[in-house]
């Protein structure tokens, strides 16, 4: 298991103070069988070239920091085993569809703004005092939204989404899925407040249902399904409001 093999890693470099456009750099790294791409990047940083910059933290696939393009696919580099690429070269680039700040670090401001725009918090007309205890929620009610609550905000789905690549106003897979997560939560009453973002032109209707977001999600969230469910619900509500002009309450 500790037999060392050597793999070539080509990394996109961009240092805005030194160069006008990205370049690339290749390193040779001896790796252990259980190493992930992130381990190789850390080896480079620690022992070969301290100028290489990238984000990482937990190294166990839950903090969402280390998403990058690995051989053209959006991946968590802490979950991409080097042995799966060997003996081929590995090419590491920053997530596409985002501006590059430096090397493998992207600018995630747009995602953070979109996350906030869908109001990802419990909205209620009246808050129940804490002293009255928890809201009851059955396991079935939990199941309704549970998978959409697993998003780690790694943004791989934005890198995979052809629509976001072309149209940056698109609210995008993760943010829509999170808004949908709250809409489906039995404790929440904020559906109407989220509609103007989620069901807007820049919301679900931009999605052409390519479904790549759901393919690349490392946590098996299905944003494409969230978007599809919302489209159906929105359409149904629209027709309901047409045939029942006095309101569309359930």
């Amino acid at each position: 298991m500790s037999d060392l093999r050597t793999i070539k890693i080509t990394v996109l470099r961009y240092r805005p103070e030194e160069e006008d456009a990205p370049t690339e750099q290749t390193y040779e790294v001896e790796f252990r069988d259980d190493w992930v791409v992130l381990d190789a990047l850390n080896h480079i940083k620690d022992h070969i070239d301290g100028t290489l910059s990238f984000r990482w933290s937990c190294r166990m696939g839950v903090c969402g920091s280390c998403g990058m393009m690995v051989n053209g696919e959006p991946k968590l580099t802490c979950a991409a085993m080097l042995r799966d690429y060997y003996p081929n070269e590995v090419r590491v680039e920053p997530l596409v569809n985002f501006p590059i700040v430096r090397d493998l670090v992207i600018d995630m401001t747009d995602f953070m703004d979109k996350l906030k725009a869908v109001k990802p918090w419990i909205i209620r007309e009246e808050e129940k005092p804490v002293s009255e205890g928890e809201y009851l929620q059955t396991p079935d009610q939990l199941k309704d939204y549970k998978q959409f609550s697993q998003c780690i905000n790694c943004m791989l789905c934005y890198a995979a989404c052809p629509v976001y690549g072309l149209e940056h106003d698109f609210v995008g897979p993760a943010a829509i899925a999170l808004g949908h997560r709250y809409n489906l939560d039995s404790r929440d009453e904020g559906n109407q407040q989220r509609q103007h973002v989620i069901a807007s032109k820049e919301g679900i209707w931009e999605c052409t249902y390519v479904g790549e977001c759901s393919v690349v999600c490392p946590k098996h969230v299905d944003p494409a399904e969230a978007i599809q469910q919302t489209k159906v619900a929105t359409t149904t509500n629209r027709f309901k409001s047409l045939v029942m002009p006095w309101g569309n309450k359930k």
């Binding site: 918090w121 419990i122 804490v130 809201y135 939990l142 609550s149």
Partner: peptide
């Protein structure tokens, strides 16, 4: 109340 998806018993 802030939305943490705690695991639940059958009675909620």
């Amino acid at each position: 109340h802030w939305g943490c998806p705690w695991s639940r018993d059958e009675d909620g």
